Computed example of a mutant assay.
Amino acid sequence: MASSGLKPQRADWQRNHERLLAAARPLVARDGAQVSFEEVAREAGVGSATLHRHFPSRRALLDEVFREAAERLRRRGDELLGGDPGAGLLTWLEELTVAAVETRGLSASLEADADGGPSSAEGCHGVVRTATVHLVDRALAAGAVRPGISPDDLLALVTAISLATESDSAAARRLLRLAFDGVRP
């Protein structure tokens, strides 16, 4: 995905950009906001100068990785609106929890590093909250969750579980399923 606002790039530029992002995703999942620029370049098979031409700062790299994650979540939230309301909400919460576990402090880093412009963390929060509101509303209307459950309650639960299980998505899923049993009527 080319950075927004840029003119179309040459094919080799685009290939390098995609290779850098593909290399960065698992490294960010493992190391979070402390990801090594040098390791990203090495894993992508490009030099440090190429990495810096594409991403002049760690923030620029993290920002794009985070934007991609937000876009994947947005699409997934839309998909889940078409199925069973209870199962869709649980699936959403599980996938959201795993995404939070796999971004390892990225949201906090981007917010702390904000330089006055809109951060990707803010954009992602809006995407996540909107999808959660829609899925909770459907689940409430279908009687799939207890009355009084709020999207903010569930987002707080996801945040707490992701912080408690950092880098262990299996534990995050297990804890979320346990908690979700208390959300069902």
Rank of each mutant, 00 (worst) to 15 (best):
L90Q: 15
E94F: 02
N16E: 14
H17P: 02
S3M: 10
S150M: 04
G32A: 07
D168E: 10
L62Q: 13
V183E: 04
R184Q: 13
L178R: 14
A171V: 05
L163R: 14
G117P: 00
L106M: 14
V98E: 15
G77M: 03
V136D: 01
A100M: 11
L6D: 10
A170T: 09
I161L: 08
L62C: 15
L6T: 10
G143T: 05
H54M: 10
E166H: 05
D84K: 05
T103K: 07
L110F: 13
G123L: 14
A41I: 03
W13N: 05
C124H: 12
D181R: 15
A69H: 08
S36T: 00
G32T: 06
T97H: 08
V136R: 06
A29I: 04
A29M: 05
A156Y: 03
A179R: 10
E111A: 13
P8M: 02
G105M: 13
D168M: 04
T159Q: 12
V158R: 09
T159P: 00
A160I: 00
A69E: 15
V145Q: 03
A69Y: 00
A142Q: 03
S107G: 15
P56D: 13
E18D: 15
S107W: 13
P185Q: 11
R177D: 10
E18Y: 02
G182P: 01
I161R: 11
S107F: 12
E39G: 01
A87D: 14
L157A: 11
E94N: 12
E95P: 01
L89G: 10
H17A: 02
V183K: 04
G83T: 09
D113M: 06
L73N: 07
F37D: 09
D137E: 15
T130A: 14
R146H: 07
H125A: 10
E122A: 14
R129K: 12
L154V: 11
S167C: 05
A22H: 11
D63H: 14
G148V: 07
S162P: 06
L106G: 15
S3A: 14
W92N: 07
N16Y: 01
T97Y: 11
A70Y: 10
L81N: 01
S150Q: 04
S169N: 04
L62N: 11
I149A: 08
R15D: 10
R72V: 06
A141C: 01
A160Y: 06
R174L: 01
T97K: 09
R30H: 13
P85M: 04
E64F: 02
R58N: 04
V127N: 02
H54I: 02
T50C: 12
H125P: 00
R138P: 03
L20Y: 06
R174W: 05
R173G: 00
A164M: 03
F180Y: 15
E64Y: 05
L62K: 11
R74P: 00
R174Y: 07
G86A: 03
G45H: 12
V183P: 02
L6H: 09
V136I: 03
P118T: 13
P185R: 07
